[in-house]
Amino acid sequence: MVSVKTILNIIWLVLCGFWMFLGYLVAGVILCIFIITIPWGIASFRIGAYALWPFGRTIVSKPNAGTGSVIGNVIWIIFAGWWLALGHITTGIALCITIIGIPFGIANFKMVPIALVPLGKDIVPTSSLRAGQQPLIEL
């Protein structure tokens, strides 16, 4: 039997997931060209996989993230975060035009924070949340 998460992920993939994945892929490739930005390129690939198939997974804060994450996030915003967040906002607005697309538009809006500041966050299956651990984004 097919789960609701699988159906939502398939619809998401067709409507916007594939295109958002391509955006993250392009950002990752560009960031991997420069040696110093390889960690952000890897983060872009990780988030791209999340943007491709998000339902059933969530974003949580890393408990040991510190100053390095803050500095890294500033660099991320300069090189890639602003236009990836803009892509989520644009796609979210387009999806909200139809009634069927509204839940997927809202899901896109929920991905804006991770597009802007991805470092210091983990993508985990919703089933693996520990007791008392709060997700940052619930899809």
Rank of each mutant, 00 (worst) to 15 (best):
A65T: 12
K121D: 00
R46Y: 02
V70F: 14
V2T: 14
V2P: 08
V14L: 15
L25F: 13
L31Y: 00
F21I: 03
I35T: 14
A107K: 12
R57Y: 15
I102H: 12
T37E: 01
K121Y: 03
G120A: 09
W12K: 09
K62P: 03
I89T: 04
W53D: 01
H88M: 08
I59K: 03
M111G: 01
V117W: 12
T90D: 05
G101Q: 08
L13M: 12
I10C: 07
T67L: 15
I30F: 01
S128A: 09
P63S: 15
I30R: 00
L22F: 03
I100F: 15
T98V: 10
V70P: 04
T67S: 14
W82C: 03
I106C: 10
P63A: 15
W76A: 00
G81K: 00
T6P: 00
L95Q: 08
I75W: 07
K62V: 09
L139H: 10
C32S: 12
M20S: 10
G41L: 04
F55Y: 15
F18S: 10
P63F: 14
S61W: 10
G17H: 04
A94Q: 07
L15Q: 04
I123S: 02
I11S: 10
A107R: 15
A49S: 11
I77P: 02
G120H: 06
P103H: 12
